[in-house]
Amino acid sequence: MNDKTALIVIDVQLGFEVESFWGVPANPDADAHIAALVAAWTAEDRGPIVLVRHDSGKPSSPLHPSNPGNRLKGYLAELSPDLLITKNVNSAFLGAPNLDQWLREAGIQRLVLCGIQTNMCVETTARMGGNLGYQVIVPLDATSTFALAADLPTGRVQLSGAELMAATAVNLQAGGFAQVVSTAALLSDRPAS
């Protein structure tokens, strides 16, 4: 990694710990991997750190600004990021301040994305980043999500969090949006899926 790589930590907020709202997380080790990435970026000066916080517009959401769950998790609370983005949609590129503008002004060409939820805000941000021409890397084990179900024209479909994480990995890598790696490979500067 060089100084032109930004670590973008997406929606690592206390509200995602409310299992009665979201369900059980698919990857309980995600926080440890995210913390390891933040520690490496801080200690080794790998590049800027961008924190992203989701400010839900729904008062019933644990991520609504009026709820304590809106706050970043403890291991990020003391961090002084290079940039804090707030958003109320899935993509960090549609938050404030303007992430794309900030990255371009800083000369950043490579992004490492981690956080919550794998198949929502991480995937959407990775897709947009790829479309905008950034080299995007997603250490999949530094993300997590939750099971989802939907009534579709073909019937009810329910996918586990692990299945959704795998689908995101395939979407991003096979679709050419991002390189999917492990945290260990990324930290050893040997990105490999």
Rank of each mutant, 00 (worst) to 15 (best):
M120V: 08
S66N: 05
T86G: 01
V138H: 01
N70Y: 14
R110N: 09
C121Q: 09
A96K: 14
N70S: 14
G130W: 07
T143G: 03
T118H: 06
L84R: 06
L103C: 08
V122S: 09
L113D: 13
L99V: 13
L111G: 04
A77N: 05
L132P: 00
V89M: 08
P97G: 11
V136E: 12
Q101L: 14
T118G: 07
F146H: 13
K87H: 00
I116D: 03
N119W: 02
L132H: 04
C114H: 02
D141E: 04
W102N: 07
L103I: 02
G69M: 12
R110C: 08
I116T: 10
K87G: 02
A96G: 06
Y134D: 06
V138L: 04
A142K: 01
L72T: 13
G107C: 13
N119R: 00
G129M: 03
C121T: 12
A126L: 11
E105Q: 15
Y134P: 08
G130Y: 07
N131P: 09
R127I: 13
A142M: 01
M128W: 04
M128Y: 05
V138Y: 04
T145C: 14
A126F: 12
T125G: 03
L83R: 03
P97I: 10
L76V: 14
Q109L: 06
G69T: 10
A106R: 14
T143I: 02
G107K: 05
L84T: 15
P139L: 00
L79H: 06
V122T: 11
A96P: 02
N131R: 13
E78L: 14
F146R: 10
E123A: 12
I85Y: 10
T145P: 02
C114N: 00
K87P: 04
I85Q: 11
L113T: 13
L84V: 14
S91F: 13
G95T: 11
L113P: 10
A96R: 15
L99Q: 07
T143L: 01
G133S: 09
A96E: 15
G133Y: 05
G130A: 08
L113Y: 14
V138P: 00
R104D: 11
N67L: 06
E123V: 04
A106P: 05
E78G: 11
A142D: 00
P68W: 13
A126T: 12
N88F: 11
K73P: 01
S80L: 14
L84K: 03
M128E: 12
L83T: 01
V122C: 11
L140V: 08
A142N: 00
L84I: 09
V138A: 01
I116K: 02
G69W: 12
A77W: 05
E123I: 03
K87Q: 00
G115T: 11
W102D: 07
K87R: 02
T124P: 02
A96C: 09
Y75S: 04
L76N: 12
D82I: 07
L132D: 02
N131I: 06
P139E: 00
A77D: 10
P139S: 01
S80I: 14
G130D: 07
I108Q: 09
L84M: 15
P81D: 06
L132W: 03
G133D: 06
L111Q: 05
N67F: 03
A96S: 15
T118F: 11
I137P: 07
